[in-house]
Write a protein that binds this DNA or RNA. Structure first.
Lengths: 233, 233
DNA sequence: TGTACATCAGTGAACGCGCGTTCACTGATGTAC
DNA sequence: TGTACATCAGTGAACGCGCGTTCACTGATGTAC
């Protein structure tokens, strides 16, 4: 069927439009993403784009869900491709590398929320999938996943929870589940939460350029934070 | 001199304009801050505002520097008003409280940067002042500032640096100074950096609403992070 | 392989809108004598 | 206290601009017989 070719062109055009939109995002922020400007950059007129996207909002939504999916898959692959003992580090580094490669996309999903924009329910599912990956990475720490064969990782033994970490764990025990399927315990939830917020802390400030002029290498800080998470859990 | 009254009205009008601008920021983001709309909300026409601000950009700049100064002062007061042993906690809590009270202002200075906007040099000075405050808070941890009289803080002893924390400290030793006056050592710089990124990690995700639907109380996480910072340094 | 019809992509004109900013002008408020 | 002048606040019209979106229309590409 020749209709397949038309379909393919359609998909290509949509992808090109989104690529141009990302370039605009990088240059002028979310507010700078303009249907007319995208069309012009693609060599067509504004209204033509309405054959591909129902509205500017739909385009934006797709940009966001695409980005979410991309990051989630990147993390999942990093975890899947590493030996259990290395999973946590692999996940953390994959997150930072991804963010540094495309800072604007990172800020699109983890930066200041677009005013008045409400994420589609699909986003929640992807976010849950990513949480699952973080859980996997956290529970692999210390070779708990059967990687104790390493032996040399003795110096990476996890320390017992502090009083306040235990309190957080108890608190998290009571809240609902963050992922489909079997529910992780409060201790694991706490570790995942700390992981998320600490990695985000370094990554977001870095990506926003807040470290500019301070003269240090953010990756040294990042590695220290990974190490602290591995030890402290 | 009656001219003082005119001056006072002038200042009042400027402040009112900035207040309205902040309301717009909260509602529609940075891009939603509009000279004409501000004027209308104040009961005057657009061009009238040009008697008070040279341009939209100047207004925005003032919004940002005001916010920076406000936060910096809040932290400084929290530190100054607390006993040495409590300084760190006081500073951290003051930061979070301030951010939760005015989330949009927090994101104005620590969120996605306004595209194409370059902060005035003044901002760097204020940021340096805030760094100084963080240094003060960090160096007061463990009662090193002469507060060992407490005694009961024995359980809060700081642990020795881990290998990677020490590496970070060495790395930071070599970079330039972040504050005017006497230069803090690499260890203190490292502690300040970890403090900044970890607090920001929790605060920013919270303020952006990323914890919505997870059903836990962010302040429990925040307290645990404070505790971890106090212990680990 | 050729013809008749349906589907789709893209154009160009037009809509109402709000934006930042300028300009000449009117009144009110201040200052100097 | 009164008058002449300067300073300032605010108005209203106008500028060019780009935005998202609709609509009727033209050609090209596909499908069915």
């Amino acid at each position: 069927m020749a209709t397949a070719r038309r379909e393919r062109y359609r998909k290509q055009t949509r992808e090109e439009a989104k690529a141009v939109a990302l370039a605009q995002l990088a240059e002028s922020g979310t507010a700078g993403i303009s249907v007319n400007a995208i069309a012009k950059a693609m060599g067509m007129t504004g209204p033509a784009l309405y054959r591909y996207f129902a509205s500017r909002d739909e385009l934006l939504t797709e940009l966001i869900t695409d980005t979410y999916r991309d990051l989630a898959e990147t993390l999942a692959q990093a975890v899947a491709g590493a030996a259990p003992a290395d999973r946590f580090r692999a996940m953390a580094r994959a997150m930072r590398d991804w963010a540094k490669r495309q800072p604007d996309r990172y800020l699109l999903i983890y930066g200041t929320p677009v005013p008045g924009y409400h994420a589609p329910p699909e986003t929640a599912e992807i976010a849950a999938g990513m949480m699952r990956t973080i859980f996997d990475a956290c529970s692999a720490v210390g070779g708990a996943d059967g990687a104790t064969a390493h032996g040399a990782t003795a110096s990476h033994e996890q320390q017992p929870l502090t009083e306040l970490e235990a309190e957080l764990a108890r608190h998290l025990e009571g809240v609902g589940s963050w992922v489909p399927g079997e529910e992780p315990g409060g201790e694991l939830k706490g570790r995942a939460l700390r992981t998320w917020t600490r990695l985000h802390g370094v990554i977001s400030l870095d990506v926003q350029g807040q470290f500019t002029g301070m003269g240090f290498d953010p990756s040294v800080l990042f590695e220290a934070e990974i190490d602290a998470l591995v030890r402290g859990g």
